[in-house]
């Protein structure tokens, strides 16, 4: 299974990754609709941090309608038709990597599609193949 990983030291905060993600998922211009975040630089290290989903699947059991499941590829996906928009998964995600926006009924998350990786000019993001288990 592929998971999204970051090299914070390479990030120049151009946000091309967020733009690419929001565009790909929602045809939206708002960066808030991207399924990852870049947190501000830590004054101590001088580095940004990335909030990305590691496909741990912790959210699966919190969903009351089983709208979240692991696809064959190993990636955790939300079935938007099934989702009742309760946001339990948003609150209980251990990494804060499940997102919501007020004009969307359903939460959203990274599905390791790699669009952000391709748009990143500095190679700060990459997909890593990990064992599903």
């Amino acid at each position: 299974m592929k998971i999204l990983k970051a090299r914070p030291e390479a990030c120049n905060e151009c946000y091309a990754c967020l733009d690419a993600c929001a565009r790909a998922r929602f045809k939206a211009a708002e960066r808030e609709k991207a399924a990852l975040r870049i947190a501000p630089r830590d004054p101590a290290t001088g580095l940004v941090s990335f909030i990305t989903c590691n496909q741990c699947g912790e959210c699966i059991d919190y969903c009351p309608v089983q709208a979240i499941c692991r696809a064959k590829s190993g990636v955790v996906r939300i079935d938007r038709d099934r989702c009742v928009g309760c946001y339990s998964c948003v609150a209980f995600c251990p990494r804060g990597a499940m997102f919501m926006q007020d004009d969307l009924n359903e939460p959203f998350k990274c599905i390791s599609c790699g669009k952000c990786v391709r748009e990143c000019p500095t190679g700060a993001l990459y997909l890593e193949e990990v064992n599903k288990n």
Binding site: C83, V84, G85, C86, Y87, A91, M100, D102, N105, E106
Partner: peptide, 19 residues
């Protein structure tokens, strides 16, 4: 059943309290 089945006047307020 969806997140807006109750036809809320301002879902933003509900989302904020809920989260």
């Amino acid at each position: 059943v969806k997140g807006d089945s109750n036809g809320p006047a301002d879902k933003k307020k509900i989302n904020a309290a809920g989260i």
